[in-house]
Write a protein that binds this DNA or RNA. Structure first.
Lengths: 137, 137
DNA sequence: GAACACATGCAATTGAGTTGCATTATCTAT
DNA sequence: ATAGATAATGCAACTCAATTGCATGTGTTC
């Protein structure tokens, strides 16, 4: 189990530390997107700066992606295997439940084709749907 | 000119003040979405808190809508006439330029149909496209 | 014009995000 | 297995946006 996590870190040229292993495991266990605050609540033993840098290193190496939100609180979701530090592919919908507040990555659920007026060049698409999630419905 | 602005405020049950008139005018003049910081730079004569509360009152009354972003900086865009405090309809794309950083509401450019897995209920859709805008292209 | 309700400005607080630096842990090459 | 190089961690401190309370000023209604 832990071995798999270590390979994830190794493959992304990150050193294997307790904090990183625990954080990745937490993301794997939770199906929802997590915020820095969620990590701070879960892991009292680590400094919030450490958690902050852990999130950043995961962002940089393509393990996590950042999910846009209307309030300031950034949330993070696990990337598909297709993500690299150079190129992130997130062809899935982010679903925010208006009841429980959780943000979920609807993996394997394609984003529809998007077109923009001529003159515009699309580099990335972020689709955030809000409503009632399957658990609250 | 100013008369139109006053009607906007009146229709949303907001008192007519210099600050609100100026802020709405600013949004009408700029085609791009604006942040609290943009307002602070433009209107040195008003307190930060006043601008903050002005934005909030516009949000509550459906004059503006908040645009999700990956960094903390919230940006705001003018709502279509269809928006009310109870129900916001934003069937347009938010385009963020990776060159100039501006966020633009592509009004009159429909968001494609979005489907979600069964069990989920859609209440709103937010589509943020990033790339190169028409001005920078 | 008077009374009320609301908007504004100021002071102050919170919390996320961020950086520098000393210490500690991991990794690599012997 | 070990030593040296390199990166991660914890702590202190700082910035900035977001937020609240309260006293004062202004808009609105009759």
């Amino acid at each position: 189990m832990k071995t798999d996590l270590k390979y994830i870190l190794k493959n992304h040229n990150l050193r294997i530390t307790d904090c990183r292993l625990n954080v990745i495991q937490f993301f794997l266990d939770e199906k929802n997107a997590l915020s820095q605050g969620d990590l701070e609540n879960k892991f009292k033993q680590y400094d919030r700066v450490t958690l902050y840098r852990t999130l950043n290193s995961f962002l940089d190496s393509g393990i996590l992606h950042k999910i846009p939100s209307e309030n300031g609180a950034s949330t993070y979701g696990l990337c598909h295997n297709t993500c690299t530090p150079e190129h992130h592919v997130h062809d899935h919908i982010h679903f925010k439940c208006n009841n429980c507040g959780q943000i979920e990555c609807l993996d394997n659920w394609a984003v529809p084709n998007v077109s923009v007026p001529s003159g515009y060049l699309i580099e990335g698409v972020n689709l955030i749907v809000d409503g009632i999630c399957a658990d609250c419905n």
